[in-house]
Design a binder for these strands. Sequence first.
DNA 1: AAAATACTAAAACTAATGTTCTATTAATTG
DNA 2: CAATTAATAGAACATTAGTTTTAGTATTTT
Lengths: 214, 214
Amino acid sequence: MSYVLSQRQENILDFIEKFLDDYQFPPTVRDIQSGCNISSTSVVDYNLQILQKEGYLNRLPDVSRGIELLENAYGESKKSIVKVPVLGFIAAGEPIPVNPISTWESDEFDNVDIPAFLINSKSDVFGLKVKGESMIDALVTDGDLVILEPSLNANNGDMVAAWLKEQEEATLKRFYLEGDMVRLQPENTTMNPIMVPASNVAVRGKVVGVIRSL
Amino acid sequence: MSYVLSQRQENILDFIEKFLDDYQFPPTVRDIQSGCNISSTSVVDYNLQILQKEGYLNRLPDVSRGIELLENAYGESKKSIVKVPVLGFIAAGEPIPVNPISTWESDEFDNVDIPAFLINSKSDVFGLKVKGESMIDALVTDGDLVILEPSLNANNGDMVAAWLKEQEEATLKRFYLEGDMVRLQPENTTMNPIMVPASNVAVRGKVVGVIRSL
DNA sequence: AAAATACTAAAACTAATGTTCTATTAATTG
DNA sequence: CAATTAATAGAACATTAGTTTTAGTATTTT
């Protein structure tokens, strides 16, 4: 049977969360004390110990404000955000950056914070801004931000950013290898796929997410 | 002319950022001291004062770990995330929740963290999961998460979630009031608009963002 | 070169803050 | 009911950690 938090413990958790939201650091024991109208620091300590034992938070001993909230069952993941570099634009006729390596993090590119749930691996995910409406059959339009995991090959059914060598065109499509041909299936099922020789297709990355701001 | 940070100051900023990333709270002066191989706490203090004056961070006096990093020109926005409740689904034939009021925050709904840049006002933004493919002409498909700002009226050109009373259908379209008719224009410009009497349309919210996870 | 300013050092000081101790008062339980 | 256990109080203690003071050494400016 699972432990049920007391009202006071609920209060404390809520307070910590709010405090973290207001300032950028956790509250002290005494902050909690006054914030939750508790008479003594020892009572705060007592309840914090319980909250720790029950897995709601982690405490670093002898460290001021050494409280780390943990995500638990109901709650949301705390570290639910990932910084992603926006490497440039993607549009028909414009090559996709080949080596999404190296000097990110630096001020070279804009970084964007995106929700972590969009991403599976913590690999070198990157973003591309969509320019023009040529991707509309992938349900992506001008101004959208597509999030990609770099990858030079794809599994059938993956949504990929593909470079069509001959046409010198980049495109977002679902990837299906059929013999020595590749079928590029639009995300929009009402539209028709295109077939190209496998040798004409260079996969550059798998699309893991799309973000549109209106 | 803008002030140029010394190497030491760069180091300190980097260290603070990394520390914040590792733990969930800022470092103490002495953490910085040892982390950046600085001989004295006063030197740390000295440089922190400069960093504060130059707008790189904020310090709360007499508060342990009272350092808040500020987003500056180059950098990324720090508080770039917003918690949004996902109220349910949107699909043809299913009404949109009317009162996005009250008991959010509670465990009643799933909360999702989304990038703040999707949102303009800090009003009671909410999310809806798209069910089915009936919204495909709005460049939105099954599984997408649409982010809405509640609003009972719309300006021309706004992307809105509209409830068609007669058809008992919810839909995402651009809104144009033309006389006593409303033109609902698909986001996908290759598709045709639908015209309905204004009395048959109830706007429920403006769409401010779309997030697709693949 | 003298004066002023920027930066570094070491140590001490004080306030902030985690921790502990001892009691006291509810709740539970056998 | 007696005996535990859970929870609350108040106070003191011990570090942690921000601040200040004094002093020395570069760097720059006049």
